[in-house]
């Protein structure tokens, strides 16, 4: 394994974690979507680099799927949804972004410690990839937890999915059919969630999930 290949893989995976952090402190939905598109672009680059150094052609397809769907189609569609719902100015976070960033750092530290501990005798690239992928997954989860708006929760879910794809690309020998089915499941999840957003909006005039909670007769 040449040093430069490892360094670039490391750079791209680390970049993905960095973009995840950028998503956490975005206040506006449009900005959030742009950062999410950037996230998908970095993911596509990381996967393509893995395809290059592993000489696995089918990973190029994965990278292409990530680029087309996650960087272009889904952010574009979400843009349209936001415009049609007229919620482009609303953002509300449950806890302040500073605190969320601190929690995110803790999660990254945890996943690095954990992954480096338990994969001590495997391939260096796979180790780094897995540690970063777990960080991305945890950060996506953190984003879902700390946002109140349904659209930002969808974005959190999608970025979590990106972490899974990064992990899958790092682990050698994942069959193509699994990647394609993951890609399709993401697409279907996106469609279902999109439809749900409109249904929620029709019924409650908002996509703030607090309205759902109020509807169930609960107090916060």
């Amino acid at each position: 394994m040449s040093g430069i290949a490892f360094d670039i893989a490391h750079l791209l995976a680390g970049g993905l974690v960095l973009v995840s952090f950028m998503m956490i402190y975005q206040d506006r939905l449009y900005a959030l979507l742009n950062v999410f598109a950037l996230h998908a672009v970095v993911l596509a680059a990381a996967v393509a680099w893995q395809a290059h150094i592993q000489a696995a052609e089918h990973l190029y397809l994965t990278a292409a799927i990530a680029l087309v769907f996650k960087a272009i189609v889904i952010p574009g569609a979400l843009h349209r949804i936001i415009r049609r719902l007229g919620i482009h100015r609303t953002v509300e976070q449950v806890v302040g972004s500073g605190l969320t960033m601190l929690a995110g750092m803790g999660l990254v530290a945890l996943s690095v410690v954990l992954m480096l501990g338990i994969t001590a005798n495997s391939d260096a690239i796979a180790r780094e990839d897995l540690a970063f992928a777990l960080s991305v997954v945890l950060l996506g989860l953190l984003m879902m937890v700390t946002r109140r708006n349904a659209v930002s929760q969808v974005v959190g879910f999608m970025s979590l999915e990106n972490g899974l794809i990064l992990a899958a690309a790092g682990a050698r020998g994942m069959p193509l059919v699994v990647e394609i089915s993951v890609a399709f499941s993401v697409l279907i999840a996106f469609i279902v969630i999109g439809i749900f957003l409109f249904r929620i909006r029709e019924r409650f005039d908002t996509v703030d999930v607090v309205a759902l909670d109020n509807f169930r007769g609960e107090r916060r």
Partner: peptide, 9 residues
Amino acid sequence: FLTIRVYLS
């Protein structure tokens, strides 16, 4: 009877 966000948490 928790909220979606609390379940996620």
